[in-house]
Protein backbone atom coordinates (compact mmCIF):
# COMPACT_ATOMS: atom_id res chain seq x y z
CA UNK A 1 0.00 0.00 0.00
CA UNK A 2 1.54 3.27 -1.09
CA UNK A 3 1.12 6.38 1.03
CA UNK A 4 0.48 9.72 -0.64
CA UNK A 5 2.46 12.56 0.84
CA UNK A 6 2.87 16.19 -0.18
CA UNK A 7 6.55 17.06 0.00
CA UNK A 8 7.30 20.74 -0.52
CA UNK A 9 4.21 21.12 -2.68
CA UNK A 10 4.72 18.00 -4.79
CA UNK A 11 2.71 14.79 -4.42
CA UNK A 12 4.99 11.83 -3.85
CA UNK A 13 4.49 8.18 -2.94
CA UNK A 14 6.05 6.52 0.05
CA UNK A 15 5.98 3.19 1.85
CA UNK A 16 4.55 2.53 5.31
CA UNK A 17 7.26 2.65 7.94
CA UNK A 18 9.43 4.98 5.90
CA UNK A 19 10.68 8.05 7.75
CA UNK A 20 10.24 11.58 6.44
CA UNK A 21 14.00 11.76 5.99
CA UNK A 22 14.10 8.60 3.88
CA UNK A 23 11.25 9.84 1.73
CA UNK A 24 12.97 13.19 1.24
CA UNK A 25 16.26 11.55 0.30
CA UNK A 26 14.48 9.29 -2.17
CA UNK A 27 13.02 12.39 -3.80
CA UNK A 28 16.23 14.34 -3.95
CA UNK A 29 15.43 16.70 -1.05
CA UNK A 30 18.40 17.34 1.18
CA UNK A 31 17.73 17.60 4.93
CA UNK A 32 20.72 18.15 7.21
CA UNK A 33 21.33 15.57 9.95
CA UNK A 34 23.85 15.18 12.73
CA UNK A 35 22.85 12.45 15.15
CA UNK A 36 21.29 10.32 12.45
CA UNK A 37 23.31 7.69 10.64
CA UNK A 38 21.87 5.26 8.12
CA UNK A 39 23.65 2.30 9.77
CA UNK A 40 22.49 3.13 13.30
CA UNK A 41 19.12 3.17 15.04
CA UNK A 42 17.41 6.57 15.10
CA UNK A 43 17.79 8.74 18.21
CA UNK A 44 16.26 12.16 17.53
CA UNK A 45 18.73 14.02 19.72
CA UNK A 46 20.31 16.79 17.68
CA UNK A 47 17.09 18.21 16.16
CA UNK A 48 18.77 19.71 13.07
CA UNK A 49 16.66 17.48 10.85
CA UNK A 50 13.38 19.08 11.95
CA UNK A 51 10.71 19.74 9.34
CA UNK A 52 7.26 21.29 9.36
CA UNK A 53 4.31 18.92 9.16
CA UNK A 54 0.99 20.68 8.71
CA UNK A 55 -1.29 20.23 11.71
CA UNK A 56 1.56 19.57 14.12
CA UNK A 57 2.03 21.99 17.02
CA UNK A 58 5.79 21.60 16.93
CA UNK A 59 8.30 20.84 14.22
CA UNK A 60 9.04 17.13 13.96
CA UNK A 61 12.30 15.23 13.71
CA UNK A 62 12.40 13.83 10.19
CA UNK A 63 14.94 11.10 10.99
CA UNK A 64 12.56 9.25 13.31
CA UNK A 65 9.04 10.28 12.32
CA UNK A 66 7.29 7.84 10.00
CA UNK A 67 5.29 9.24 7.11
CA UNK A 68 1.51 9.00 7.17
CA UNK A 69 -1.00 9.09 4.37
CA UNK A 70 -1.98 12.63 3.45
CA UNK A 71 0.92 14.21 5.36
CA UNK A 72 1.89 17.68 4.15
CA UNK A 73 5.58 18.32 4.75
CA UNK A 74 7.74 21.42 4.34
CA UNK A 75 11.43 20.72 4.66
CA UNK A 76 12.77 24.21 4.01
CA UNK A 77 10.16 26.71 5.22
CA UNK A 78 11.45 29.91 6.88
CA UNK A 79 10.44 28.54 10.29
CA UNK A 80 12.41 25.35 9.68
CA UNK A 81 15.50 27.11 8.41
CA UNK A 82 15.54 29.58 11.28
CA UNK A 83 15.17 26.77 13.82
CA UNK A 84 17.97 24.73 12.26
CA UNK A 85 20.19 27.79 12.35
CA UNK A 86 19.50 28.41 16.03
CA UNK A 87 20.24 24.76 16.83
CA UNK A 88 23.57 24.80 15.02
CA UNK A 89 24.36 28.14 16.63
CA UNK A 90 23.66 26.61 20.03
CA UNK A 91 26.04 23.75 19.27
CA UNK A 92 28.73 26.18 18.18
CA UNK A 93 28.20 28.63 21.04
CA UNK A 94 29.44 26.14 23.63
CA UNK A 95 31.90 24.39 21.31
CA UNK A 96 35.47 25.15 22.16
CA UNK A 97 37.14 23.34 19.30
CA UNK A 98 39.29 25.41 17.02
CA UNK A 99 38.71 24.35 13.42
CA UNK A 100 42.13 25.31 12.11
CA UNK A 101 43.76 23.02 14.62
CA UNK A 102 41.31 20.17 14.26
CA UNK A 103 42.07 16.78 12.74
CA UNK A 104 38.59 16.56 11.29
CA UNK A 105 38.37 20.07 9.90
CA UNK A 106 38.24 18.71 6.36
CA UNK A 107 35.35 16.38 7.01
CA UNK A 108 33.61 17.78 10.06
CA UNK A 109 29.85 17.53 9.60
CA UNK A 110 29.12 20.25 12.14
CA UNK A 111 31.29 22.69 10.28
CA UNK A 112 29.76 21.66 6.97
CA UNK A 113 26.21 22.14 8.20
CA UNK A 114 27.09 25.46 9.78
CA UNK A 115 28.45 26.63 6.43
CA UNK A 116 25.40 25.38 4.56
CA UNK A 117 23.03 27.13 6.94
CA UNK A 118 25.05 30.30 6.86
CA UNK A 119 25.78 30.26 10.57
CA UNK A 120 28.74 32.35 11.55
CA UNK A 121 29.57 33.66 14.99
CA UNK A 122 26.83 32.48 17.35
CA UNK A 123 24.61 35.07 19.01
CA UNK A 124 24.48 33.16 22.25
CA UNK A 125 26.80 33.80 25.15
CA UNK A 126 27.29 30.68 27.17
CA UNK A 127 30.10 28.84 28.90
CA UNK A 128 32.08 26.42 26.78
CA UNK A 129 32.17 22.67 27.07
CA UNK A 130 35.70 22.02 28.15
CA UNK A 131 37.23 18.64 28.91
CA UNK A 132 40.84 17.50 29.00
CA UNK A 133 42.05 15.53 26.00
CA UNK A 134 41.95 11.78 26.53
CA UNK A 135 44.97 10.39 24.76
CA UNK A 136 45.93 7.51 27.03
CA UNK A 137 44.72 4.76 24.71
CA UNK A 138 46.83 3.76 21.72
CA UNK A 139 43.64 2.88 19.82
CA UNK A 140 41.41 5.87 20.23
CA UNK A 141 41.74 9.49 21.28
CA UNK A 142 38.83 11.52 22.65
CA UNK A 143 38.53 15.25 22.81
CA UNK A 144 35.11 15.79 24.34
CA UNK A 145 35.59 19.51 24.01
CA UNK A 146 34.41 18.92 20.44
CA UNK A 147 31.61 16.49 21.31
CA UNK A 148 28.10 17.47 20.29
CA UNK A 149 26.35 14.63 22.15
CA UNK A 150 25.03 13.00 19.00
CA UNK A 151 25.72 9.60 20.58
CA UNK A 152 26.68 8.02 17.33
CA UNK A 153 29.71 6.54 19.11
CA UNK A 154 27.47 4.98 21.75
CA UNK A 155 25.23 3.39 19.15
CA UNK A 156 28.13 2.34 16.88
CA UNK A 157 29.76 0.65 19.86
CA UNK A 158 26.54 -1.15 20.85
CA UNK A 159 25.05 -1.90 17.49
CA UNK A 160 28.03 -2.35 15.17
CA UNK A 161 30.96 -3.35 17.35
CA UNK A 162 28.63 -5.14 19.83
CA UNK A 163 30.43 -3.71 22.81
CA UNK A 164 29.28 -1.55 25.66
CA UNK A 165 32.11 0.87 26.28
CA UNK A 166 30.24 4.18 26.43
CA UNK A 167 27.48 5.44 28.70
CA UNK A 168 25.74 8.76 29.27
CA UNK A 169 26.39 10.47 32.56
CA UNK A 170 25.23 13.68 34.23
CA UNK A 171 22.33 15.76 33.02
CA UNK A 172 21.48 18.82 31.00
CA UNK A 173 24.36 20.96 29.78
CA UNK A 174 26.80 18.80 31.72
CA UNK A 175 25.69 15.50 30.22
CA UNK A 176 28.62 13.66 28.81
CA UNK A 177 29.62 10.41 27.10
CA UNK A 178 31.63 8.54 29.72
CA UNK A 179 33.63 5.36 30.00
CA UNK A 180 33.29 3.42 33.25
CA UNK A 181 32.93 5.89 36.09
CA UNK A 182 33.99 8.82 33.95
CA UNK A 183 37.56 7.72 33.33
CA UNK A 184 39.69 8.60 30.30
CA UNK A 185 39.09 5.94 27.65
CA UNK A 186 41.58 3.11 27.90
CA UNK A 187 39.67 -0.07 27.29
CA UNK A 188 41.07 -3.44 26.39
CA UNK A 189 37.97 -4.13 24.23
CA UNK A 190 38.94 -1.14 22.10
CA UNK A 191 42.14 -2.87 21.01
CA UNK A 192 42.15 -2.93 17.21
CA UNK A 193 38.50 -1.94 17.14
CA UNK A 194 38.07 1.76 16.39
CA UNK A 195 34.61 1.09 14.93
CA UNK A 196 33.14 4.23 16.49
CA UNK A 197 35.78 6.62 15.21
CA UNK A 198 34.50 7.14 11.66
CA UNK A 199 30.96 7.48 13.01
CA UNK A 200 31.85 10.63 14.94
CA UNK A 201 30.67 13.67 12.97
CA UNK A 202 33.18 15.99 14.66
CA UNK A 203 36.77 15.94 15.79
CA UNK A 204 35.83 14.44 19.15
CA UNK A 205 36.99 10.94 18.26
CA UNK A 206 40.13 10.23 16.34
CA UNK A 207 42.82 7.71 15.66
CA UNK A 208 45.87 8.61 17.71
CA UNK A 209 48.69 9.69 15.43
CA UNK A 210 52.32 9.44 16.18
CA UNK A 211 53.55 12.93 16.75
CA UNK A 212 56.04 12.91 13.93
CA UNK A 213 53.92 11.45 11.16
CA UNK A 214 53.41 13.87 8.37
CA UNK A 215 49.75 14.57 7.60
CA UNK A 216 48.87 15.32 4.05
CA UNK A 217 46.35 18.09 3.63
CA UNK A 218 43.04 17.28 1.97
CA UNK A 219 40.85 19.83 0.19
CA UNK A 220 37.86 21.12 2.09
CA UNK A 221 34.73 19.12 1.42
CA UNK A 222 32.61 22.04 2.49
CA UNK A 223 30.44 23.01 -0.45
CA UNK A 224 27.80 25.67 -1.04
Amino acid sequence: MALLVTLNGTQVRGRPGQTILELAQENGVDIPTLCHHADLSPLGACRVCVVEVEGSRTLVGSCHTPIADGMVIHTHSPKVLESRRVIVELLLASHSGVCYMCDKANMCELRKIAAELDVGLPRFQVRKHYYPLEDVSPYIARDLTKCIMCRRCVRACNEVAKHDVFAIAYRGFDSKIVVDFDQPIDKEVCRDCGVCIPFCPTGALSQPRETKTEKKGKPLVVTS
Binding site: G44, C46, V48, I87, M149, S175
Partner: peptide
Protein backbone atom coordinates in the same frame (compact mmCIF):
# COMPACT_ATOMS: atom_id res chain seq x y z
CA UNK B 1 18.47 23.58 33.18
CA UNK B 2 19.37 21.36 36.09
CA UNK B 3 16.55 18.95 35.30
CA UNK B 4 16.96 18.82 31.51
CA UNK B 5 17.82 15.25 30.58
CA UNK B 6 20.37 16.57 28.11
CA UNK B 7 19.33 14.45 25.19
CA UNK B 8 18.28 17.08 22.68
CA UNK B 9 20.19 20.19 21.65
CA UNK B 10 17.59 22.98 22.05
CA UNK B 11 16.86 22.13 25.66
CA UNK B 12 20.32 21.01 26.77
CA UNK B 13 22.08 24.07 25.38
CA UNK B 14 19.16 26.50 25.31
CA UNK B 15 18.28 26.28 28.99
CA UNK B 16 21.90 27.01 29.88
CA UNK B 17 21.99 30.04 27.60
CA UNK B 18 18.82 31.26 29.30
CA UNK B 19 20.23 30.70 32.78
CA UNK B 20 23.35 32.68 31.97
Amino acid sequence: AEESCGKCTPCREGTEVMVE
